[in-house]
Design a protein around this nucleic acid. Structure first.
Lengths: 241, 241
DNA sequence: GGGACGTTTCGGTGCCGGCCGAAGTCTCCC
DNA sequence: GGGAGACTTCGGCCGGCACCGAAACGTCCC
């Protein structure tokens, strides 16, 4: 009788409704490009299966691909996709009724979770205790304001230029500072262009280093010194790599 | 070999990955409570099918139920869920590769879409051309600031108290003002507590009225007068109910 | 050229889950 | 109490899709 048109929302959600595809997207939240084979191994499926999933995710606009020789590198299509997935993941962790499977069940998984909770990248900015601590320091020093969302103060803008010594890209469609819900700390950390620049700077200068191949980050001795000097941050735990 | 734990993100997405459930959620974005039978008719499925879907959505924490006698009323679990669904729906409309089915195919659907584009509720605040126009007026009069997100200015706070004559709930966990992406205008309109209060006031005072049973809104003559007086808004089209 | 390797395509299999109708339960109203 | 109406439970059916292995396709390197 009544013709039922497809619902775009359902089509988009269906892309993320599969365990394997969700694992792909969560892995890609580290902001880097992964090859098809890496993702297949990470999710524990055959290469052929991974290939089909990637085609669907790319077709749906969630992923962007970059072919290099016999490799197919793939990354999240953009910051908006990253934010969408972060929001969903945060809600899936905090939401009721989704408890089963949320807690790690093996020793290996538990230690991986602990490392992620200490510090990690969230797409292109810093998250975990590390990210929240830095965000708190920026707020405490009045470099960042929080009313509705986040906004860099004038002092904050000059801090980036003089103290940190980097220039923030002006204009552009992306917000300079925005809050991103941290799913381990359940509080907001700094995202947006400022968050991305901060993260990139920390990686470049060796203040933090990747643990293994994932998103987890460890603060180095140089990083602790720099964060104490620039932001008065202390008490960041030393993490074994 | 390796045990693969379920992914909470996938479980959450699966709830929205079905056309019927997605239709339910989109209908519930009007912020009101619907009965199970209403939703079944709206989505064009049997009552038994709707019942099962509702149980899953409630179990997943997306919906809250309220039983009254032989009726089962159901609404979105909270503003955070509404925002999540709005974000996903907005991305599904703007995103690439999801074009099929996005455009209405029947005359009836086309006129419904036109009404929604003119004005509608978005969970608990105003959206469509109506919502964007009002947001623009607030921005132009410096009652609302936009840098990272939205923030009410001092003048804006007093405008709500004196001009509009309502008091904004203080404190609370919910943001006073935040931007919400409008999927017809593809721009931001005002959401958050201030947006909700504005919408409730407009409905209470008869400035806008519901068209039919859905989310579409029409501005009344009284509404046009009030919006012109309070915000200098002109040119809001008269819509046939 | 030839072999190794990463990726893709193609059949085929099995399971999950969405759908319905019928029967059952509960509430309301007369 | 009895009947009507809203909702739920239960079987059973069916389609879609995630998965794999094998074979084909490219690319890289020797």
């Amino acid at each position: 009788m009544t013709f039922a048109p497809p619902v775009p929302l359902a089509a988009l959600a269906a892309l993320l409704a599969d365990d394997t595809r969700a694992r792909f997207c969560l892995a890609l939240l580290d902001g880097r490009a992964w090859s098809a084979g890496e993702l297949a191994a990470h999710a524990g499926v055959a290469a052929s299966t991974a290939s089909e999933h990637l085609s669907r995710l790319i077709g749906g606009g969630l992923l962007a691909e970059e072919r290099q020789g016999r490799h197919r590198y793939v990354r999240l299509a953009g910051p908006d996709v990253a934010q969408l997935i972060e929001d969903l993941a945060a809600h899936a962790h905090t939401g009721a009724g989704m408890g089963a499977g949320a807690r790690p069940t093996t020793l290996r998984a538990a230690s991986a979770t602990r490392a992620l909770a200490a510090g990690r990248t969230c797409y292109d900015h810093l998250a975990g205790r590390l990210g929240v601590t830095i965000t708190d320091a920026l707020l405490a020093r009045r470099l960042l304001h929080q009313d509705a969302g986040f906004a860099l103060s004038d002092a904050g803008l000059s801090w980036f230029a003089t103290e940190l010594g980097v220039c923030l890209p002006a204009g552009g469609r992306r917000l300079l500072a925005r809050p991103c819900l941290d799913w381990t700390e359940r509080r907001h950390h700094l995202a947006g262009t400022a968050g991305a620049v901060l993260c990139a700077t920390a990686l470049e200068r060796g203040w933090v280093g990747r643990i293994g191949s994932g998103r987890a980050l460890a603060v180095t001795a140089a990083g602790r010194e720099a964060l104490a000097r620039l932001l008065g941050v202390t008490g960041l735990a030393e993490t074994a790599p």
